[in-house]
Design a protein around this nucleic acid. Structure first.
Lengths: 217, 217
DNA sequence: CGGTCTCTTGATTGTTGTCAAAGGCGGTGG
DNA sequence: CCACCGCCTTTGACAACAATCAAGAGACCG
């Protein structure tokens, strides 16, 4: 069994409270690609992501996915829906193998929300979530080239051994568009890419200012 | 002086604590259009919006504004930046006359964050903020027609006595586009608009399903 | 009555998604 | 070992959407 006491969120709960949580919790292993919860489902559990990473995305009525955010362990999942009594606003899919604790808060009650320490940790987690959402909105003004450039600068390393199709999903664009942009960057000498999609950044500044550069042409 | 005790956030602080806050707070009146804080500024105050409404928007490098969210009294403003030590992620502009309390938290310290009641209220406020941001992301998949239809259904009343230029800003589209969409809706018999921009909804369902209807054509 | 602002409409452009075709690569099974 | 299948990538042609630019009409105000 996991040592709840070692998790920041729960570290200041008393033993009785921890017992209650343990009694109504299930500890589960997920594989990459498994769905933790679907958008528009009614929340039933509070999830604690103990290890691994989970991707959050929205799906629109035409079935198109829009990638929103990645949550890394250790953090809460589905807490906004659970605690504010709305349907899950996004779908949560495991990006890696994950260990997740599912707390049936209908049985336990939400007493841990009253714990000052839990509440403070929750606030921290929510701040992160908000800043990340604002960042998504930021990205929505960017042209595809700028979005790709920003992504390369931040996580170019992660291109290695990933397909463009995968990467294009996180960038919320089509693989065709990504391919075209990367080829353009290559041609203009900003980057090099090898067969394993390993990226080498040649002209960092050009990538950083791609928006301005192109506007002047 | 405002009765801090009557504000949910502060209602459970003790008298000593309230005294400290009062000592380092300024109570200020703002007019419509006044800026409370600018995006990318360093946060100095925690703002409590006591009356009125404030619009949050982002400005990109080309000077284009992107409307994000409206905050109505009574709520906190700038708390994410203040408490997580990052620059303001958005600009806050008064949409109406406002009364705002500015707390110099560098002088007071952030002791109120440790108050369980304050913390719980803060969490509620953050949930709302998150759901509203997710809604912005939702809107970003919609075509302009769908966005206009959704807006009419939700706040059609507020068209009265507002210019299309104003409304188009909140919809993150140009006035030309808004004009064209509204005229199309009028021609198709979905709505009526009079000279004061008062909207009458004729075919609610058509507006609700405009996305699907158009896709079938 | 001149000036400013809003609204409308048309023409044009830029950006990105869609569709289609072809080549490459790896894995599978006969 | 090879034929075949499926997926990924690239490229071109095209379409859809909304922004931009431009011009004119109408409203309001000093």
């Amino acid at each position: 069994m996991i040592e709840l006491k070692k998790i920041d969120f729960f570290s200041k709960l008393n033993d009785k409270e921890l017992e209650v949580i343990k009694k109504y919790s299930i500890y589960e292993n997920y594989s990459e690609g498994d769905i933790v919860y679907y958008e528009a489902d009614k929340p039933e559990y509070l999830f604690v992501l103990l290890s691994g990473s989970v991707d959050l995305y929205k799906t629109n009525s035409k079935g198109k996915q829009f990638y929103v955010h990645r949550v890394d362990a250790i953090d809460l999942l589905g807490e906004v829906a659970a605690f504010s009594d709305v349907l899950y606003p996004v779908t949560a899919e495991c990006a890696t193998k994950c260990k997740i604790l599912q707390i049936n808060y209908n049985k336990t009650g939400k007493f841990f929300c009253d714990n000052p320490h839990f509440c403070k940790e929750l606030v921290k987690s929510l701040y992160d979530r908000i800043l990340s959402l604002v960042n998504v909105i930021d990205d929505s003004f960017l042209k595809t080239k700028e979005r790709v450039a920003k992504y390369i600068l931040r996580e170019g390393v992660n291109f290695k051994d990933k397909t463009y199709t995968e990467i294009s999903k996180k960038l919320n664009m089509t693989p065709e568009t990504l391919s075209r942009v990367l080829n353009e960057f290559k041609k203009r000498g900003f980057i090099e890419i090898d067969d394993s999609h390993q990226i080498e950044i040649i002209e960092k500044e050009k990538l950083e200012n791609i928006g301005d550069i192109d506007r002047c042409i």
